[in-house]
Design a protein around this nucleic acid. Structure first.
Lengths: 150, 150
DNA sequence: AAAAAATAAATTGCGCACAATTAAACATTA
DNA sequence: TAATGTTTAATTGTGCGCAATTTATTTTTT
């Protein structure tokens, strides 16, 4: 049988094992490490991979749009995008119609990475040992929490 | 009814919304941000808070033991612990019986933070809007994934 | 006991994250 | 239209996180 809701034993609330936060923090970092061998082969970091996922789907996005989707601000994105620009994966230029915006456009070099990356999701799924059903359920829960937090 | 397992539509595998990784990455960062107001009031960063959670429970731990429990290495911990030492929250000294090890001991200043931190878990739980039952279930799943990844 | 291997921290270097500030362009209002 | 306010990126500064290397100590093997 499942355990009934743990009674809030006041002594234990500050133990690491009972924290809400730590499992997320730990899983997130270990997941990123698990991606590492695949991404390293492409010369990518994990957040750079996330940027490419969006550009493979959308081709052109402003820094603001990237930031909204990834929940990152320009303090993180600007230097990251500059590094990706140096690799010729994308271009950065001001929108002529609104000079405040910077449009990020996928370049051929960035598109070429897509073919090499297409096997990563399945390999990662196998690595964490989740079924598609479990994955879906988890994603639903996490998305719900994310909504509460943003 | 619950959705049946999404058939692996090959075109969609590289879309951000279908990634395993992103929800964890995003939730972890948003959770840390949600802790921020409470931790800032104590002058703590989030990983420093994790270190204190362990020291409140164990009083003395080596850097190695902290690293095993938090899944962090000395490259992260050493400078972090030095900053906490400067705040007089803990002390760092070599173990006389094995000069390779550094023992981290809780100081009165660090113990004093415990009383101020004891309300954080309940406040955070309310913030994310999870019941204790949901929290337990989620923690079980995450711990399982963590086991697969480490 | 001497040499080799293993262990624990520290160090170095790079890339995020993010708060806070700045600067430029655009929008709104008086 | 001039003044004010808003929006978008860039910049600055701090603190992780982690791979790779180095240093010191201990253990194991010859």
């Amino acid at each position: 049988m499942a355990n009934s809701p743990t009674p809030p034993a006041p002594d234990d609330l500050l133990k690491l094992g009972n924290q809400l936060c730590f499992p997320f923090y730990a899983v997130s970092r270990q997941l990123t490490k698990a991606y590492q061998p695949y991404l390293q082969a492409l010369g990518l970091t994990y957040p750079q991979y996330l940027v490419l996922l969006l550009l493979w789907e959308h081709e052109r996005l402003t820094v603001k749009e990237l930031g909204e989707r990834l929940l990152l601000d320009s303090g993180t994105l600007t230097p990251l995008l500059k590094r990706m620009e140096q690799q010729q994966w994308l271009s950065r230029r001001r929108d002529p119609r609104d000079e405040r915006s910077v449009v990020i456009s996928l370049l051929p070099g960035g598109r070429a990475l897509e073919a090499q990356a297409c096997h990563i999701p399945a390999q990662m799924l196998a690595k964490v040992g989740l079924t598609l059903t479990e994955l879906d359920a988890l994603r639903t829960q996490l998305t719900h929490i994310l909504t509460r937090l943003t």
